[in-house]
Design a protein around this nucleic acid. Structure first.
Lengths: 142, 142
DNA sequence: TTAAACCCTATAGATTTAGTAGATTATTAA
DNA sequence: TTAATAATCTACTAAATCTATAGGGTTTAA
């Protein structure tokens, strides 16, 4: 059985890594290898994930000995909408329903009559609400 | 920009075809080609979609001249949970969160502490609620 | 005889999930 | 000051899987 609109491992691992960093007491850098071992994530894959999180302003990094990654904000200031948009892309399941990345369907003459649009608008709104009201702090058990 | 946990065209087309059939006054069979032209869906693709909907008990079919597909139930009796599960697969975005197709993640030692699990349970519940409370009739503007 | 569903196979292209190899940078120890 | 070390960063490659069709032939009923 295939899970069709499935969460990618990229996002899954990214969230796990972020919560790992959120559980740290201070903001001293944590090496990729440390997170990789603790969370059972392929090192090189995690490397690329943390890089995109850094490039999108969620993480800071320090090179060289004693280096690693650290959160740039407090964990209760990081909404899951931000995380999801960076790692997974738009929240909407159809482009014609996306707030930030709207695209018209070429097969659909009128969105206001489209059943798919009507249904997915609701799904988008409810998911968005959850992602907005949940922060990293809510997820990291601390 | 890629939509990562995107709705497949299979599901999209399937929902459109179902609402097309729901809008018919009587239950006389409608040919695939008719739906295909009206909804701008590739004929052969639609063929396979309608076939799976029939095999899963949503549609009836009639072969030969004047044949086609028709709804087996009233449109207000067809929940979108059923449609989504047939076309798209499990509602959950992660196997470890699925009600009907649960699978443990091999990387995750304890689901009760897992941030991804915690978040996705909420998303599953809210999506499920929408799909359960929406029927074909709600979507077909009639 | 014709029009329709049915069934099987193949496939280009995209995406995901990595793996491999090496470059660059910063710290630390000699 | 220099060399070693440890870390991030960059770029290429590749297997596996999934999507969205296309083609062609068979069966059934009017």
């Amino acid at each position: 059985m295939y899970f069709c609109y499935m969460l990618s491992k990229k996002t899954k691992y990214g969230i796990k890594a972020l919560t790992y960093l959120a559980r740290q007491k201070d903001k001293t850098p944590v090496a990729i290898a440390t997170i990789s071992e603790s969370e059972n994530i392929s090192l090189k894959f995690l490397e690329s994930i943390l890089l995109t999180l850094r490039k999108n302003g969620l993480l800071g990094s320090k090179k060289g000995k004693g280096g690693g990654y650290y959160l740039l904000k407090e964990s209760n200031e990081i909404q899951m909408t931000t995380v999801m948009r960076i790692l997974e892309g738009p929240i909407a399941m159809v482009p014609c329903v996306s707030l930030n990345f709207y695209e018209k369907c070429d097969d659909c003459p009128d969105e206001n009559v489209c059943a798919v649009n009507k249904l997915m608008v609701q799904v988008r709104d409810s998911s968005l609400k959850i992602f907005k009201n949940t922060t990293l702090a809510d997820l990291c058990n601390c």
